[in-house]
Nucleic acid binder design. Structure first.
Length: 479
RNA sequence: CGGGCUGUAGCGCAGUUUGGGAGCGUGCUGGCUUUGGGUGCCAGAGGUCGCGGGUUCGAAUCCCGCCAGCCCGACCA
């Protein structure tokens, strides 16, 4: 069928137009009245809830507890950690008036909560027996962004921020890496995104952090998306907020803190990792509807098809499958097929008189071609298996895509070519100015120093000074 | 914040050059018809022309300011 305004611009024609149209047409979001703000609509919010549930479960399984800290932060708190203020100053929203008058001290709408949480930790921690302190909060934060994009960079976004305090560096680093691993497993097992876990170079570090780690995913246009970050703060915040404890030795020591976050940006990652020209493709774990049943009836038969469709949905639901019957009577089946494909539903079942007569239903997979008859009796077990296979297939497909678009490069020419369509694995000298040159010429940046990258010496791909990291870095253009 | 483009019915757009009637497609409502890949016909509702100011007898149209969106840069989860 010729492209019309009911579909989306094909990815190959204009990837960002595809994305921008899709988030609205799939009814994931709408625009808020304030620049860069986003209304997350029920269909989009359900996906977030499912992602949230998976993250929250893992956070709790690893011994963390949830709490909630206030939205408004005294400006003076931010000033206490020099790099932190400097890093966030340009993107802060500040409340100067309240209660009908100007405030004596302006209040910051939190861009992140290190400072308030640090202040409270100082109050709650006094002995090594109070450590580690493993906190997490689910919250909204505000960062005034120059170029907003739905999910990827919005002025206000939702996230989870873990904040922990530890007796020493070893324990804090262990925590930092544990959170990173948690994010990698969330990305792979829930979102079916094959991320690369690694450390950021100095230039890409979080303001105030000693070390920053990241999981990076590859989108279908070859660009990288930072999908979760974990920071080791050293004693920077402990010193700024006086988080001290008495050690077994009786000495007063500063705690070592960490923080880590995963955000609604992840949904942008899901869209751009799996979506195609027909629209969204949702991993079953995150799909609000895993199976949609389209009843097909002609005239009087419409009424006869509905009860068996509902009955089938009920049997699927009892199996734990999120099944939905599309009961809209004013729309043709063809319209519904396209509609649910746009919205990324993994499996569609058609149920009409012909199927009922044979005791079957016609199954179509979101990325498959053709339709397969499935007996109604075996449907719950069959669909459970199909959904599992679909989830696995998405991860495999995304991994293959990522690998096909990742090149180990041996020259600057190869590097420049590689980052046009994907990632380049290359040695680097570690000089910030050299990173800048690379960015200026190719718009690629070091995404991370992969944790499991094999040792590799050699010379910087750009300036030929000796490699600073002992292994190759992942370079790519990023969101 | 710099450069370029845009804002007219829910959505997509024409009309703006050369000032005077607010239109088209789709969607929406009602009815009939249809339903296995975006049904067809008939009737109908729906717009402060992004917001504010100015010029004019008269502004969607000309001028100034602001807001929002898209693309390209600097910032970022």
């Amino acid at each position: 069928m010729a492209r019309d305004e009911r579909g989306v611009t094909p990815q190959s024609e204009d990837f960002s137009a595809w994305y921008n149209e899709l988030v609205f047409k799939a009814e994931l979001v709408d625009r808020g009245p304030v620049r860069g703000t986003m209304v997350i609509r029920p269909y989009g919010y359900r996906i977030w809830e499912l992602l949230q549930a998976g993250i929250d479960r893992r956070i709790k399984e690893t011994g963390h507890v949830n709490a909630y800290f206030p939205l408004l932060i005294p400006e003076s708190y931010l000033r206490r950690e020099a790099e932190h203020v400097e890093g966030f100053a340009p993107e802060l929203a500040v409340v100067t008036h309240a209660g009908g008058k100007e405030l004596e001290e302006p209040l910051i709408v939190r861009p992140t909560s290190e400072t308030v949480i640090g202040e409270m930790m100082a109050k709650w921690i006094s002995s090594h027996r109070d450590l580690p302190m493993l906190l997490n909060q689910w919250a909204n934060v505000v960062r005034w962004e120059m170029r907003p994009r739905m999910f990827l960079r919005t002025t206000e976004f939702l996230w989870q921020e873990g904040h922990t305090a530890h007796v020493d560096e070893d324990d804090a680093i262990r925590e930092t890496l544990l959170a990173l691993d948690l994010y990698a497993s969330v990305a792979r097992e829930i979102a079916a995104m094959p991320v690369v876990a690694g450390e950021k170079t100095a230039g890409e570090r979080f303001p105030g952090a000693r070390r920053t780690f990241t999981v990076e995913g590859m989108m279908r246009d070859g660009r990288a998306l930072q999908s979760g970050t974990s920071h080791y703060m050293g004693t920077n915040f402990a010193k700024a907020f006086n988080i001290q404890y008495t050690a077994e030795s009786g000495e007063l020591e500063y705690a070592h803190t960490t923080s880590w976050g995963m955000t609604t940006r992840m949904l942008g990652g899901v869209i751009m990792t799996h979506g195609d020209d027909k629209g969204l493709v949702l991993p079953p774990v995150l799909a609000p509807y895993q199976v949609v049943i389209v009843p097909i009836g002609r005239g009087d038969q419409a009424g006869q098809v509905l009860p068996p469709a509902q009955e089938l949905a009920g049997r699927l639901q009892r199996k734990g499958i999120r099944a939905h019957v599309d009961t809209r009577t004013h729309l043709s089946p063809g319209f519904k097929f396209n509609d649910w494909e746009l919205r990324g539903v993994p499996v569609r079942l058609e149920l009409g008189p012909r199927d009922l007569a044979g005791g079957t239903t016609l199954m179509s997979l979101r990325l498959g071609q053709g339709k397969t008859p499935v007996s109604l009796d075996s449907a719950p077990a069959r669909l459970e298996a199909e959904l599992g296979a679909f989830q696995d297939m998405l991860l495999r497909r995304a991994t293959d895509f990522r690998d096909e678009h990742t090149n180990t490069v041996g020259s600057w020419g190869e590097f420049a070519e590689a980052v046009k369509t994907g990632w380049a694995l290359a040695p680097h000298c570690g000089q910030p100015s050299c990173e800048d040159d690379i960015k200026a010429e190719t718009s690629a940046t070091p995404r991370c120093i992969p944790l499991d990258g094999p040792p590799a010496e050699g010379r910087c791909i750009r300036c030929e000074l000796p490699s600073a990291y002992g292994k190759r870095l992942v370079f790519g253009r990023a969101y």
